[in-house]
């Protein structure tokens, strides 16, 4: 099968905001496959938003190439970059960035210039229905809730049928319950459309709920890229591990090599089991409602910092108390 052309590709892309300062993005090679939702995750200043803006044409690279559908649109020594308005990418901003003086319908219709009025109306209604807000067209942004605004922003970005959808932390300003519901809805919409998307986020929950692959950025450099669960299970560094959730540093008793284990990977080995990773002392026990969490102090050789683990429901043993010693194993 012929290799498909990636809708978005960064080749050795760099971007520096001030000469002499450290680059916001350095030598990034990354491609988004057709129909894929790729999440870019990283802490503040990791360069994830810069990368997204480079894709949209809102920033210019200092080095490397940005390609859309295989065509060079920025960098690579071209004299004139393709301006944002000609890239035909959709962008959903953190707070929606709806045009406050336009109704929801007018917002959605904004990117549909040059079409017949009836076709625009039909498309707007179709998009409003898609985001489950039919009949909301006459409302102004200030008359919408936070979640509704984000859905209208999505409808607006999707209305011109963009080749690529960029989502810049679209859930970060929503309360947790709404965030949870909205990301499910948006994932279903994007999946239904087969929409290629690049999601920028600092929240691992967004990654798990929406993306198929994840790219982890640290100080402008790409640290790890791969399928979400694969990266989650096999992070290459503490930064990569902790970008996707809590992780415990476990040392291999033989060579002292470090590995990263998730709290839910904790197991209680059968007595004398060869899988036992070592002994640990229970320092604290905390019930959170959904589960019981333990803080363990591993014996020397097994680890050199506290482990935070979830007590397995299926253990069938009494929950230990602070001061108890327990044997520890990890899910293979």
């Amino acid at each position: 099968m012929a290799e498909s052309i990636p809708p978005l590709e960064f080749r050795k892309v760099s971007r520096r905001y001030r000469s002499g300062s450290s680059p916001a993005v350095a030598d990034v090679d990354l491609a988004v496959a057709p129909g894929e939702i790729l999440a870019l995750i990283g802490g503040s200043g990791s360069g994830k938003t810069t990368l997204l803006r480079l894709a949209a044409g809102l920033e210019s690279p200092d080095g490397g190439e940005v390609r859309l559908d295989g065509v060079l649109v920025a960098g690579g020594g071209i004299a004139r970059e393709l301006p944002p308005e000609q890239r035909q990418v959709g962008l959903v901003f953190q707070e929606g960035a709806l045009f406050p003086h336009l109704t929801a319908a007018a917002n959605v219709a904004y990117g549909l210039r040059g079409r017949q009025r009836a076709a625009v109306r039909e498309r707007v209604e179709e998009c409003l229905a898609l985001v489950a807000l039919p009949g909301y067209g006459d409302r102004y942004p200030h008359e919408l809730s936070g979640g509704e605004r984000q859905r209208i922003a999505l409808a607006r970005a999707l209305a011109p049928a963009p080749r690529l959808l960029l989502l810049d932390e679209p859930f970060s300003h929503l309360d947790p319950a709404l965030r949870w519901r909205l990301r499910e809805e948006i994932r279903d919409i994007l999946a239904g459309l087969g929409q290629t998307a690049l999601l920028v986020t600092h929240d691992p929950e967004d990654v798990f709920a929406m993306a198929e692959r994840v790219a982890i950025l640290e100080q402008g450099a790409l640290r790890q890229v791969g399928p979400v669960l694969s990266v989650y299970r096999n992070p290459v560094s503490r930064y990569c591990a902790e970008s996707l959730g809590p992780a415990n540093r476990v040392l291999d008793p033989a060579g002292g090599k470090e590995r990263w284990r998730r709290p839910e990977d904790f197991r209680l080995p059968a007595d004398g089991s060869p899988q036992a990773a070592g002994e640990a002392r229970v320092e604290a026990v905390r019930e959170t409602g959904a589960r019981i969490e333990l803080r363990l102090a591993p014996d020397a050789g097994a680890g050199d910092e506290p482990w935070h683990v979830h007590w397995p429901d299926t253990a069938g043993r009494p929950v230990p108390s602070p001061g108890d010693r327990i044997s520890v194993a990890w899910r293979a």
Partner: peptide, 21 residues
């Protein structure tokens, strides 16, 4: 704010149209 202008640009509006609209 910049995001509102950038949203307009990404949606296909030129800088001039963004200014007017």
């Amino acid at each position: 704010g910049r995001p509102v202008e950038e949203a307009s640009r990404v949606l296909g509006a030129s800088p001039w149209r963004t200014f007017l609209a």
